[in-house]
Design a protein around this nucleic acid. Structure first.
Lengths: 219, 219
DNA sequence: AAACATAATTAGGTAAGCCTAATTATGTAT
DNA sequence: ATACATAATTAGGCTTACCTAATTATGTTT
């Protein structure tokens, strides 16, 4: 059995590893979990004994295969619940994270498989994040930040790299939604802002901070 | 904030109080929660300090109005989740209890109100138990055990007094479902078994143990 | 290489919820 | 009223998951 705390550590390690690659430091973990570094050191030693992670003293930790599978199952649950909250219960994409943080810890394989089926086996959550299957496998993802596109490229908005409510609400307010077609009409040299045409209709200026966090795929 | 343990104590106290009325003893609580009596004494003292219950030493405990409201909100959540699991996810009525025991502790008023709406504001759960509203109010319930009916009475099966999987599965196997119409054709003096006609079709003999746990309303 | 800042660890402590064993209440039978 | 069984409480401990303060590593600067 893995405890609530362990699940949260595993998920945090997975996410940091995903973003910054390789070994995860004690301080990075302490930061994301909002837990004192001394407590983290304590805890990861125990997790290493349980083979959930490998731990090199003063270096950092890495998920074991077992740990990775558990992390992925939590992420799978989190994202499936988010889909449900948005598609079936009418929540907005900036309202579901905290609720899903609770629901993701409910234990029942049967439940999660039935939920998956009920939702029609979605491949992505409301933020465009991929949902791993029951075995922890993802479909391929070829998205890149809009900031890496060149003038003239036409792409589809498929996900966000930043999940803060501030950013999600900015997009909602700006009427930019997953699935929108974006045409890069120009890039301002001075401030790296993008002029884009959305769904062949509206024209918008998007700041460098924004385009960095919009994930798109080529059309 | 009320902890997971507190929620479980409150729910247990509510249920014992409901069944046996009045004051709830330490041992009854210890029994239902499968927790040592000494631990229960410890815990209820703390709950009394928090005004969740009133506690008279060596006598037992009673829910405070605040405690009652919390207990009812847990029960509300439990039963709404059960409805969802059966109606939307395809679970059987004997498969949902443990999952709902976990889901009932998820904290979000918004969530539970949206769920309630999504389900069409159900008044009863899959076992026929009443679902309190957001303010902890129940609709009236006029049901009684089938065992209290007399020969010739025609009633509707609306709930179970016993929630064990064994009993639920017995009913499923016997093809007796909530909403079925039951006509008491005869009562065997010797063993108090009932001969009933179900939905004006099948005839069945139901033992005293069974009829005691079938809740019905007059038709 | 020495000095320094930063990161990580160790040591010692706390609160929540549980436990067992020992003691004290309570209520019933003699 | 006393004895007895049962229920409840007290006392002392344990584990989990956190904390602070003090110490030790690590990796840059100079």
């Amino acid at each position: 059995m893995t405890s609530l705390a362990e699940e949260n550590y595993l998920k945090a390690i997975y996410k940091i590893q995903e973003k910054h690659g390789d070994v995860v430091t004690t301080s990075a973990l302490a930061e994301t979990l909002a837990i004192n570094a001394a407590s983290v050191t304590d805890f990861i030693k125990k997790m290493a004994v349980k083979k959930l992670i490998s731990y090199e003293k003063s270096k950092g930790v890495r998920l074991s295969e077992q740990g990775r599978q558990i992390a992925l199952s939590i992420i799978r649950k989190h994202r499936l619940w988010e889909v449900w909250l948005v598609n079936n219960l009418g929540f907005k994409w900036d309202e579901v994270h905290e609720i899903a943080e609770q629901l993701e810890h409910v234990i029942s394989d049967e439940l999660i498989e039935q939920l998956d089926k009920h939702l029609g086996y979605p491949k992505t959550d409301p933020h465009g994040d991929l949902i791993p299957d029951a075995k922890g496998r993802f479909i391929k993802n070829t998205s890149k930040p809009l900031s890496e596109c060149s003038k003239g490229e036409k792409v589809k908005f498929t996900g966000v790299a930043e999940h803060s409510n501030a950013f999600l609400q900015y997009l909602t307010k700006s009427n930019i939604k997953l699935g929108d077609e974006l045409l890069v009409e120009g890039i301002e040299e001075f401030d790296k802002s993008f002029q884009v045409k959305i769904n062949n209709k509206e024209r918008k200026i998007l700041s460098k901070e924004v385009v960095k966090n919009l994930l798109v795929i080529a059309l």
